[in-house]
Design a protein around this nucleic acid. Structure first.
Lengths: 225, 225
DNA sequence: TATGAAACTAAAAGATTATTTGAAAAAACA
DNA sequence: TGTTTTTTCAAATAATCTTTTAGTTTCATA
């Protein structure tokens, strides 16, 4: 049984979604503002539907907060005129977005798809493996071609974040936000670059042609591919 | 050319909508009852504007019937935005609703939005595919004949704009306006030409005979055919 | 088919973004 | 405390992307 938190200030839309999803057998909780959402999120949900424009702030903020501590799937509900800016949403770690107005069919499909992805991934053990690299996300140990690699705490955090978001590009500012506790004094982007460099030195067989930590020029870094 | 079925028993409102939409270049058919609507729906339309209160029954019923066999976009016209009605509307699979009285501008906006959504979002993702080319409009990744293609930010913007406006020709000045932030210092048209050239080099199997980014002499560029 | 306008191409200059290095500051450890 | 490790930052270098320039080709049409 999946439980879904609906964060949407438009009463009608919120209600409409609620009815549809409950009909499909999902449990739902409706809230209408960021603050209510924060309160509810102390409980556990399978997925969050998150409007961007809310009376007490932006859904993007909440997304960022959630991602500090949780990998729960998040789908944004966006007004169609903000669609172009939704690449930002992915940067904040959302899993998908849907433009309003949307049909019920589309909503259900997306929810199913996201839930399927998230359970497949989290169902696996905490050992991640790609090419010669093996990372035990729980024990925090890393081996490369069978050899144990010693990473510092920061290095491991970065690697883990990239792995957990494999398939997406993370911008430098998002990486910094999520690795260094939010409100901490300003961290220079180059500090991140230097950590990336050390990671590469420790992991990549050929530093000039990284296979694991790949630069996406003008944007940030991504794992693999 | 989009065709719209207007199902509305108030002759004046129906006529008013008809005139406005035809002025905007839509084809329209006006009917005034459920039965007439059922008859017309044997033909094909791009969108249905559907009043809820009709002399021979509720628009909700018709919506339900339509959804048994079709995903055609439906926008409800509601007398007063009673929440209950609209929850039902969503439940039956409508795409949007407009509360009477509404302005012409609002009507046109909603129609445009719904039509766009229904064509772009009709699948279950924003992955665009044409011949050997596949573009993930959300994640900004492009593959050509299965190979990942690395585009720069500007190149991707141009490609996306052309794809989103597939079927129409975009003039150079429009492309420039929409890709470079408007008020930025003047951008030479040849700058665009050069970007197009690089895109072609990366995407086209035969640069001399482009299949994807096609020049319309004297005007601009268009995607495909 | 000769012509001028429009589009294409290649190469270089200019601008931006990444990587690397080294050295200083901070934190962790014994 | 002194030593080692880690982290941060700044400056130099390198890589990549963007724009401009100038010359060539293609196109519509007279």
């Amino acid at each position: 049984m999946y439980s879904i938190l609906i964060v949407e200030d438009d009463v009608i839309i919120n209600g409409g979604i609620k009815v549809c999803l409950e009909k499909q057998g999902y449990e739902t909780v409706s809230v209408y503002s960021l603050n209510e959402a924060r309160e509810e999120l102390k409980k556990s949900f399978s997925l969050v539907l998150l409007d961007i424009n809310l009376p007490d702030g932006s859904g993007l903020e909440l997304c960022k907060e959630i991602r500090q501590s949780s990998e729960i799937p998040i789908i944004f509900l966006t007004a169609n005129d903000t669609e172009e800016n939704m690449i930002e949403g992915f940067e904040y770690g959302c899993d998908d977005y849907i433009s309003k107005p949307f049909s019920v069919g589309v909503l259900e499909q997306r929810i199913k798809a996201v839930l399927r992805r998230s359970t497949v991934q989290s169902g696996n053990s905490d050992i991640f493996s790609y090419k010669g690299l093996t990372v035990d996300l729980k024990r925090m140990s890393v081996t490369n071609e069978g050899n144990l690699v010693k990473l510092s705490a920061t290095e491991f955090k970065i690697l883990r974040l990239l792995i957990k978001n494999k398939g997406q590009v993370l911008t430098r500012s998002i990486l910094i936000d999520r690795i260094w506790d939010c409100d901490e004094n300003y961290i220079d982007e180059n500090t991140l670059n230097v950590h990336i460099r050390r990671l590469r030195q420790k992991l990549e067989p050929d530093t000039k042609n990284p296979q694991y930590i790949v630069t996406v020029f003008g944007i940030g870094y991504t794992f693999g591919e």
